[in-house]
Design a protein around this nucleic acid. Structure first.
Lengths: 198, 198
DNA sequence: TACTCGAACATACGCTTCGTATGTCAATAT
DNA sequence: ATATTGACATACGAAGCGTATGTTCGAGTA
């Protein structure tokens, strides 16, 4: 335990701050989360925070980067067992909707993130999952499955639809029932991109 | 000018506060807008604010209600000259996208509103334009134009798609060109709801 | 090994801002 | 005419953010 590398200790403090921030931001929201409480929860003070992340927004950015990476991994894992490329694409969308049901992702990624840092497409990380969706659509266009629309535009619309679905579901009295309806509508809507009808 | 009714004066102070809040919230964002500055701009003090609106969130709510009413009126006006009910529906969506390009609507309705007050569907006003979209889809389902999906689910997805399109466009270098692409993709996507292909 | 230096973090301070508590004035009711 | 209440201003306290200023400890060097 003793005599650890300097870099290791820095990484650990950063990790502890990010972890505390994730729970605090998710529970109280970005604005209501106190930096004093947050850092104390991590066994540190605000000094560590401003040294490592610059300011409160910097910490939020770090939290978002971490969550975004996790979401990307889960989306990758979601489209493994489908037959066609189109089904894999749909599975990604459904996975996104389901992930967005988690309060942590809702609050941080969908509500506070855009409000504090601006449009997600302008974030340094450029939201990996959005990039993934764009690439998937582009491949589907190339192989003739999807109409020749602008891939990024389609990805943006699909993404927004899934996002709003998630917000709707999360606020519903019976999230499970609403989830079914939303997923069904999502499949129908997405079918508008298909070149031919089934 | 003299001896106006009490109620008139109250209405005017409320209107002046809301107007000042609209510009301040749109320019600096909700969090960065100072109540002192805002009320001073309106020729008043914070006393008037807390008396009329309870707190800062109450003022935001009042601002949102006003903007929402305006958006509803503009959506109604947008679908006047189309032939079919479906085209009128599409026009509504396009109108929504175009409205969302305005910084005031972007910042207040799409970014800060949900972050501060939570999911729009839970707002007291229940976002009139969302209700309108739901009703329009329901009518299209009833007359056989649209597949029998859940109307509210479809409205939510369509709304989210349009919303994200607007965010994307507003942040783009060339908003006009991106708008075209987004509208085209929106039409294609929405066509997924149609019962038969054209 | 002793010394220096700088990174990593803690502490202290000032400034801003929100919400409330209190005060004031005018209009209305009796 | 006076009491009362609504509408707003002023005063106050508390909390939070960012920065400026320490303080400690590891790492490089001779």
């Amino acid at each position: 335990m003793v005599a650890r590398r300097r870099a290791e200790m820095v990484e650990e403090t950063r990790a502890r701050l990010i972890r505390a921030a994730r729970t605090a931001f998710a529970a109280k929201g970005y604005a209501a989360a106190s930096m004093d409480d947050l850092t104390a929860e991590a066994g540190l003070t605000r000094g560590a925070l401003y040294h490592n992340f610059g300011d409160k927004k910097g910490l939020l950015q770090a939290v978002i980067d971490q969550i975004d990476a996790e979401m990307l991994a889960r989306m990758r894992a979601a489209h493994g067992q489908a037959d066609t490329a189109w089904d894999r694409f749909l599975n990604e969308g459904v996975a996104y909707i389901e992930m967005s049901l988690e309060p942590e992702i809702q609050r941080i990624m969908l509500l506070d993130g855009p409000a504090v840092l601006g449009d997600p497409s302008q974030w340094p990380n450029q939201t990996a999952c959005l990039r993934t969706t764009t690439q998937a659509i582009q491949r589907l266009i190339d192989d003739g499955t999807v109409k020749p629309v602008d891939a990024e535009a389609a990805a943006r619309l699909i993404n927004g639809a899934a996002l709003n679905a998630a917000l709707w579901i999360a606020a519903a009295d019976d999230p499970h029932a609403v989830l079914e309806k939303a997923v069904e509508a999502f499949r129908q809507l997405a079918a508008g991109l298909l070149r031919a009808e089934a």
